[in-house]
Design a protein around this nucleic acid. Structure first.
Length: 410
DNA sequence: TCTGGGGTCCTAGGACCC
DNA sequence: TCTGGGGTCCTAGGACCC
């Protein structure tokens, strides 16, 4: 393993970079609040919320992202709590991703703050992967005022683990001959695809480290965690990951990567946790309409329509159910999606159940041209489609608060 | 005052068709 | 009359990731 500053292992045997911003949301907000830099800072975590990001001083108290706000405040009562500012996060992210794409066309954005780069085509122009990584880190620091960490390896999965090792503000290279000595001491839970449940299950079987996984027969793993995941984990445990960097951006950047190659989205949805649990059907359905309008607007903006409508209902005890219905034809019409969602909700026959969260999702998305070619949209549905588009236009001109369903007024 | 919101993928059972 | 696959679609739940 080579860390920053050490002599560069040559050329192209480790062409994959995983770049991960350090405590991204917190770091971006702290650019304007340098006086808070060395104090514990938490982003997010309002009422019934979770921590979106914590800077390193906060982490010293055990605060982690995705932790409940309650727990974080108990661990670190004097932490400064900041609200997220997604416009700024997106702006910084867009600039960083653009820098990556000037380095190589093979950039796969994973989220606002994380990307894989395949730099095999750039080494002749820009130097070794380690050199490229250090240049990127310096540029990001100078231009955006935040730090990042980079993992470098022959494969995506090892690069990802290497960047974690590099944090904060570092670089780790894992040359091919050191892959197993790097991987095998790690906990099985460190592998991509092994979450809390699978980790616990593997631990119960006495499989604690990645090395344990590597030396367990594939069939045994498959019996424990399923055919697919079992085979996959065995491969990962030996660093055998053939997946290539697939150029794409996330939705937040619009269409990116190599134009036209981005995977089409497969579903769009929205959900909301109520400020307090409710058993009032009217309250729930008002929220369902709001969520449906939001989703349908996004469908139309993306020029897609979907056939399957799914609602999610989470109860006070956190049990969560989904109900779905596949329509005869794809739709992007607010009223049609809403009608399906209401039918699904009423079919639950809830009496006094306390509802914590409700969600609406549309799946099985198709490009609208395809739908229209089938002679579907715009002909039926009593003019709702035209009404929706008029609402979209008005919302673009006057803001989304200007036009909304009557039942959402007041 | 426990536990967000946006997604993807996999599994498994049943219906239905050939 | 009984037995039998394979393939696809739909639904529900669950695990996982950021």
């Amino acid at each position: 393993m080579v860390t920053a500053g050490a002599p560069t292992a040559a050329g192209t045997s480790t062409p994959i970079l995983h770049v991960d911003m350090d405590a991204f949301y917190a770091s971006v907000l702290l650019r304007d609040r340098p006086e808070l830099q060395h104090l514990p800072v938490i982003v997010g975590g309002g009422h019934r919320g979770v921590v979106l990001a914590a800077n390193y001083p906060a982490r010293e108290y055990g605060v982690r992202s995705a932790m409940t706000a309650t727990r974080a405040r108990r661990l670190c009562p004097h932490a400064v709590v900041l609200q997220p500012d997604y416009d700024t996060f997106t702006k910084v992210s867009t600039a960083v991703m653009a820098l990556f794409r000037r380095t190589t066309s093979l950039v796969e954005a994973i989220s606002l703050d994380e990307a894989f780069l395949d730099v095999s085509g750039a080494v002749r122009r820009l130097g070794s992967p380690l050199q490229i990584a250090e240049d990127l880190r310096a540029t990001i620091h100078d231009e955006q005022g935040i730090t990042c960490s980079v993992g470098i390896a022959a494969s995506i999965s090892v690069a990802k683990l290497a960047s974690k090792r590099a944090k904060p503000d570092g670089v780790v290279v894992v040359p091919p001959e050191e892959i197993t000595s790097f991987l095998h001491p790690l906990d099985v839970g460190d592998l991509y695809g092994v979450g809390e449940k699978t980790q616990a299950m593997l631990h119960r079987l006495g499989l604690i480290t990645v090395g344990d996984l590597a030396h367990t027969p594939v069939r045994t793993l498959q019996r424990a965690v399923g055919v697919h995941l079992g085979a996959h984990l065995h491969d990962l445990a030996w660093g055998a990951d053939r997946r290539e960097v697939a150029p794409r951006s996330t939705g937040a950047f619009g269409h990116g990567g190599r134009s036209g190659e981005a995977d089409p989205e497969k579903s769009m949805g929205a959900q909301e946790t109520f400020g307090r649990d409710t058993d009032d059907r009217e309250v729930v359905l008002r929220e369902v309409l709001k969520l449906t309008a939001k989703v349908a607007t996004r469908l139309r903006a993306a020029e897609v329509a979907g056939r399957t409508v799914t609602i999610t209902v989470r109860f006070a005890d956190f049990t969560t159910i989904t109900r779905s219905r596949t329509l005869a034809e794809p739709t992007d019409v607010t009223q049609e999606i809403y009608a399906a969602a209401v039918r699904l909700y009423d079919a639950l026959g809830l009496q006094r159940a306390r509802v914590r969260l409700v969600g609406v999702r549309v799946e099985g998305l198709l490009p609208r041209e395809q739908v229209q070619r089938q002679g579907v949209l715009g002909e039926r549905e009593h003019g709702w489609s035209e009404a929706d588009r008029a609402v979209d236009r008005a919302a673009r001109r006057f803001g989304s608060a200007a036009v909304r369903p009557a039942s959402l007024l007041g």
